[in-house]
Amino acid sequence: MSEASTVPMGEGPSGPAPARRGIGRIGLYIFLVGAGLFFALPLYVMIITSLKGMPEIRVGNIFALPQAPSLDAWSKAWSSACTGLNCDGVSVGFWNSVRILIPSVILPIALAAWTGYALSFWKARGAEVIFGILLVGAFIPYQVFLYPMVRAFSSVGLFGTLPGIVLVHTIFGLPILTLMFRNFFIGLPIDLVKAARIDGANFAQIFIFVMLPLAVPIIVVAVIMQATSVWNDFLFGQVFAGPDNLPMTVQLNNVVNSTLGEKEYNVNMAATMITALLPLAVYFLSGRWFVRGIAAGAVKG
């Protein structure tokens, strides 16, 4: 099983060997290239629009390359785009997202690794019940849990604070991350734990000195997955972060869908592109790791 999960799409094609040439073969590539264009289109439009000026956008074709590419829209999006009366650009949201991101990646992953380890090698009454609750919970729409959580957080002063939003990300990141770590640890030989016990290591020492070093690959996948999902989150940020910590996605939506003033599509697309940059960079730099992360995290979102 751990074998299968490290090779996302198998070794090689198993489909019929192609006839060397022929109409079918050409049709196949036409289909693939056509689909590729459909998938690439939004990224292309986002980039070229962000490099144009408004006069050009008003008269030109949305797919046309910019006549005089410029980064003006980018700098405006970053530092002076308006949401209502505030004109500080999306940089504010960017830094808020960074402040939310770091603890919201470290905390849930640490807890999930620890819980996954406890669930893999040790016998405990009720462990299956906890695991079952978390698994079912991972699939339920967040709106079902949201309101009681808002009340509970308000009553202890966590609502609308940075620790509050981090706790929310920890709670909702936990199921899928725990599942990933548990499945990883179950694939390891139990003799490792037994040998460490004979050497006198206790429960926590086995985790820190034996398991964690072995878990580096799955930690990388977990970091990629959790970071992407925290960065892309809108719902929790909108409800729990509070006005001073609004993450970038919320601010972006406010900038673009603000009804005040004339729409500046180039600035909007630059702001959208800036928001998408982090996940895109992670995706194109980490490739295969990223695929494993989103696959494991497919139940989220």
């Binding site: 289109l41 809108f234 939506n253 909007n268 959208t272 995706y283």
Partner: peptide
């Protein structure tokens, strides 16, 4: 790659297209 994008980003780009 679209899997890695925020729904907000996806929505705004398609809204513009």
């Amino acid at each position: 790659y679209p899997q890695g994008m925020s729904f907000i980003v996806t929505g705004l780009v398609w809204q513009w297209i």
